[in-house]
Amino acid sequence: MTSVLPSTDQLDALVRQVPGVESLYPAGPLVTAMLTAALDAVAHRAPAAPLVYVGEQGDGVRVTAKIGIGAAESSGHVSGRVHDAIAAHLEQGDYPPVVQIVVIVASVRLSV
């Protein structure tokens, strides 16, 4: 069985394209995020940490995306759409089964 994990770069781009998503935050464990952020700061480069987090859980895969949304739609709609986009992407590839797709709406920006 080929159990290659889905590419986080692809997932980052995919989530960013979902209508209503305004920003994408690092969703991995805090330690990883801080470590990468610190390395980025030392190297004076743009944040390189993958934003969408992909982890193995049992025989399957668990994906977490943390997003900020705009004023046009409800958090339920936008996060649902993000879920569906990730689910569809994972179905197409030869990936381990999906255990869970977590979508966290971390900010809602009403004004421009």
């Binding site: 958090s75 339920g76 996060s79 649902g80 879920h83 689910a87 999906v98 255990v99 869970q100 797709i101 977590v102 979508v103 966290i104 709406v105 971390a106 900010s107 809602v108 920006r109 009403l110």
Partner: peptide, 20 residues
């Protein structure tokens, strides 16, 4: 937040709500 799929776990943070 509710979603029909059993694999979905959708949430909005308390912080985001306070922001609203």
């Amino acid at each position: 937040l509710t979603h029909p799929s059993p694999t979905a776990r959708l949430v909005v943070t308390e912080g985001a709500l306070r922001g609203i």
